[in-house]
């Protein structure tokens, strides 16, 4: 129970420090879950994001469920998820009265213009960390560049990139292994 509570609190911390979509959660996860708690490795996070981006639902919830399940089974998955949604519930409900005015305040807009710069820098740093486990040879470099360019410049659904990359990985690996043997 103590561990489940720890999981809830840790993910609530992650939730409250996330400004933006699931990608904005990555640098916080790296610090809290990988470095501080040691609940997952860098490479695993990349895997969870890969799956989270092509399965239904909110990526942040998907990734929390994965890590929670890995540490403490089904209950762990549920507690981690409840943790990550808890701050949103509290914050949105307590701001509800003033909320539509809230985002019009000049100070809020200025603050978030600053935060966006920071989130972009933190995500950049997070990708640099992922790089070591994800981009290991010429082919993976090519996949990274192709997906980066493709998803920046076109409206092709994300799921197609993920599926194509997975199939490519399977195909290339099995051909290589066949050659070695």
């Amino acid at each position: 129970m103590k561990e489940l509570l720890d999981m809830f609190i840790t993910f609530a911390k992650v939730g409250v420090m996330t400004f933006g979509g699931g990608y904005a959660m990555l640098p916080i996860l790296q610090r809290e879950v990988v470095e501080n708690k040691g609940w997952a490795e860098e490479a695993e996070l990349t895997d969870y994001y890969a799956i989270g981006q092509c399965t239904p639902g909110i990526i942040a919830v998907n990734v929390a469920t994965f890590i929670g399940y890995k540490k403490r089974g089904v209950l762990g998955g549920i507690f981690a998820t409840l943790g990550v949604i808890f701050p949103s519930l509290i914050i949105i409900m307590s701001l509800a009265g003033v909320i539509s005015a809230f985002s019009d305040f000049a100070a809020v807009q200025h603050a978030f213009a600053g935060i966006r710069v920071c989130v972009a820098v933190l995500v950049f740093n997070a990708v640099v960390k992922l790089w070591k486990s994800a981009v290991v040879d010429k082919l993976t470099l090519a996949i990274f560049l192709a997906v980066f360019a493709g998803s920046t410049l076109t409206n092709i659904p994300v799921m197609l990139f993920i599926l194509a990359a997975g199939v490519l990985g399977l195909a290339v690996r099995s051909v290589r292994k066949g050659g070695e043997k």
Partner: peptide
Amino acid sequence: LVKSAFYGLRPASAGLIASAGLSVLLVA
């Protein structure tokens, strides 16, 4: 087989996250 699939998935996942970061950066 799962390992091979992830070999291809990881760089794709990193590419998608980088692209999301870039769009935030452009807005900023």
